[in-house]
Design a protein around this nucleic acid. Sequence first.
DNA 1: CTTGACTCTCCCGTCGCTGGAGGGTGTATA
DNA 2: TATACACCCTCCAGCGACGGGAGAGTCAAG
Lengths: 271, 271
Amino acid sequence: MIRIGDFSKLSRISVKTLRYYDEMGLLKPVSVDRFTGYRLYEYSQLSVLNRILALKELGFLLEEIGRLLDDGLSVEQMRGMLKLRETEARQRVREEAERLERIESWLRQIEQEKIMSKYDVVIKKAEAVKVASVRDVVPLPSEQGGLWGELEGYLAMNRVRPKDACFTLYHDDEFKERDWDLEVCEPIEGDLKESTRVKVRTLPAASLACTLHNGSFTTIGEAYNALGKWITDNGYRITGPCREVYLKPAKNGSQTDPETVTEIQFPVEKA
Amino acid sequence: MIRIGDFSKLSRISVKTLRYYDEMGLLKPVSVDRFTGYRLYEYSQLSVLNRILALKELGFLLEEIGRLLDDGLSVEQMRGMLKLRETEARQRVREEAERLERIESWLRQIEQEKIMSKYDVVIKKAEAVKVASVRDVVPLPSEQGGLWGELEGYLAMNRVRPKDACFTLYHDDEFKERDWDLEVCEPIEGDLKESTRVKVRTLPAASLACTLHNGSFTTIGEAYNALGKWITDNGYRITGPCREVYLKPAKNGSQTDPETVTEIQFPVEKA
DNA sequence: CTTGACTCTCCCGTCGCTGGAGGGTGTATA
DNA sequence: TATACACCCTCCAGCGACGGGAGAGTCAAG
């Protein structure tokens, strides 16, 4: 029988931690002095502690370890739990590797351009959205006003109020001089019947690489460039049409309103 | 100017989080209604929030992000901070990969042997230790009693009291039938002059792969086997002589005392 | 009898939030 | 105009695995 300080020295685990494990029911001292409250351990408990530490390194929570130690666990159960930990560990390795990749990308960016980019890119998980939309080919993006007119008119007529920021989907894979295939969208809830021009569809859930552009549309190309660079630089792949979300729409459809805020989103997945 | 709920929808960041960022001084709303306490944001603050999120993904603490946003930070300073994050991220990738390796090793172990090993292996960082020791070649490990006699006698004579568990260093690289080169050690503090037989030296700090053996020395080979297997299986390399630490020494040097607890430690590094 | 090492319990802080209680505010509808 | 109901506020607690420190009791040696 040894006191907590000696047990701590032998196991190289702090007294604080040992008391905490006692409290959690993970490793109770074999006896506690009734009068002084002193904890008394057996040498053989060092093995139990070692098992606790080993399980902890595998990523188990202390609470799980407590249950593992109590239940006489079968090899099969143990295998199952380990399999679970395995997937989790793989996940975390991926996450940390991605973080590292992002840091290196930032470093490369400031090395090359000697200035911090205006455009910060963030990955966001988006749920599926149901939208009403009008799709058509127009000479230039700046000429999508007519499509918006059609869509808004139809929605107003059907007493459907949009519930979120509206956006345009760009369906062309490559840059075009003229004739852009685009689709103006308003997120909606509830039901809405389609017309020949206005369709209702649901965009699938996706991971989106996002960046924000402030001000006039004349310079929005820079945002696209920065975002495109980021996507390849961080090892992602574009998996669908780009969304241009009008967080703060321009006043009366102006192309140069300096107050507009637009978010550009590309659906992506890890390459 | 928009209220927190709309700002939350546009940014896809929860209201709770926005309030927390306000409290932390990370992202203060441009104005707060004097009477209702309602927070009012500007659309342009979405960009600030995006920068916060981007920095968070690089692994910065919120407090650091706050300082980064306040200070007009130079590109050089930013480069320095990123370099720091980079090393940290590399470290964490390594750690998670090691965890994964350990899990897979456990899985292999239970697949092969259909039973959970008695021997749990843990890596512990050990500081340098100053020891008094006697080194010699003896026919068999069980015959090291004489060396202990010499060492203890000398220590008692010099009024030096050992401060930690004593141990034996095994200097042979390979298994030997006879004639083992070993060194019995007692950790000491303070000064002690050497004799022809008793030396004083300091073992360097190291990472140790450790496992515990309970009971008789006749079966301690199993512990060595399990530990050796673990070390190669987890991608470590042995970097020094093995230590056999007598956490609970046998009564009167018995080789079969079932109460003894012995820790086997190999200095290792990642291969 | 003191000194100093050891032990106890209890409470607070970590980090980045989330959840809930309890109460005020703003607007659309009946 | 009354009333829903959504929205907003502040304050407090909790997570996980401890570490730090206060304040008080315990134990062995000199």
